[in-house]
């Protein structure tokens, strides 16, 4: 993890900082609650938490406009909350209930919202990359200036289809931003054990795609980079790569003991780089918000998350007849 440089701060308002604080906190508290419900046996199967990486998605969403599309891997709860999907529907999908975004038939890794232009939630590592370029293709075909945000991890970055997609996205000038969330571990395999080509943002160079590395723990740096990439895409200049240097605090999934890294490494990041603490510092040290103000927000977020958890427990399991619905459109 590169040490955080003093970012080039856009002229950021109090309202904006509070918005980021609120959105990042919602993801963190939501994920903590999901972890808790998993421990209680209410959530089953695979559950990949986004804790630690919140600044990435919140900063990128700050640069979007209506009609922009996004999709990601299986570590997807944060992306859904950041694009405005209802926490109740997300949590109820985690518990496999009728009120979930996929009526309980998708689970943690497979949720979608046409309304919010969220296209999943994909469980096959790297598969979302050409799919995202395809969504961008649909906007290119229709001739609008929307952009698709295609998120994937440092692990997926070694999949062959990523490079097939880079080639075609640049060839056809597709308005797609490839966001590599480099949290440095592909499940249990660190970057240095997976590749000698560690500058992932530079891997588009061979295809003519510009890219840059960004401090993904700094929401303002993320937003600034996102705005640059979005402008590039909307101007019809083709794809852009953003490598977000980030870190996940929890294991790969709920069943991961994370023995491939030291407790000290994790603690050091939490202490020195935490994205929420960073914004909290900007707010309090800049005199933009008091501890009381922030406590009020904490309380408000807690209420939203508790309401989502309650909903996810009370929503009934899907009717047995749902087994045979939605197979065909």
């Amino acid at each position: 993890m590169a040490a955080r440089k003093a970012p080039e701060r856009p002229n950021v308002s109090k309202e904006e900082l509070l918005k980021y604080y609120r959105e990042m906190l919602l993801i963190r508290r939501f994920e903590e609650k999901a972890g808790q419900l998993y421990g209680m046996g209410l959530i089953g199967g695979f559950c990949h938490l986004y804790i630690g990486q919140e600044a990435v998605v919140v900063g990128l969403e700050a640069a979007t406009k209506e009609g922009d599309k996004r999709l990601t891997s299986y570590r997807d709860h944060g992306h859904m909350l950041a694009c405005g999907m209802d926490p109740k529907g997300v949590m109820a999908e985690l518990t496999g209930r009728e009120g979930g975004y996929s009526k309980g038939k998708g689970g943690s890794m497979h949720m979608f919202s046409r309304e919010k232009h969220f296209y999943g939630g994909h469980g096959i590592v790297g598969a979302q990359v050409p799919l995202g370029a395809g969504l961008a293709f649909s906007d290119w075909y229709k001739g609008n200036d929307n952009v698709t945000f295609t998120y994937f991890g440092d692990g997926a970055a070694n999949q062959g289809q990523v490079y097939e997609t880079y080639n075609m996205a640049e060839l056809w000038n597709l308005p797609v931003i490839f966001v590599i969330e480099n949290n440095q571990y592909a499940m249990g395999t660190s970057m240095k054990r997976a590749t000698k080509s560690v500058t992932l943002y530079g891997r588009g160079e061979a295809y003519g795609i510009p890219g840059e590395q960004v401090d993904g723990m700094d929401v303002l740096a993320v937003k600034a980079a996102a705005e640059k990439a979005v402008a590039h895409c909307r101007a019809g200049k083709g794809p852009y790569i953003l490598e977000m240097m980030t870190y996940r605090y929890r294991g790969h999934s709920m069943s991961d003991p994370a023995k491939y890294r030291t407790r000290e490494e994790v603690e050091k990041i939490k202490t020195e780089k935490d994205c929420i603490e960073h914004v909290r510092d900007l707010l309090t040290q800049g005199g933009l918000a008091s501890d009381e103000d922030l406590k009020a927000i904490d309380k408000e977020i807690k209420a939203i998350v508790n309401e989502a958890a309650e909903f996810s427990k009370e929503s009934p399991e899907p009717a047995l007849s749902e087994l045979y619905t939605d197979i065909y459109a």
């Binding site: 309980g104 998708g106 919202s113 999943g120 197979i327 459109a329």
Partner: peptide, 10 residues
């Protein structure tokens, strides 16, 4: 995906 999305994404 149509199934996994509860019928949203044919």
């Amino acid at each position: 995906t149509n199934y996994m999305s509860g019928g949203q994404l044919g």
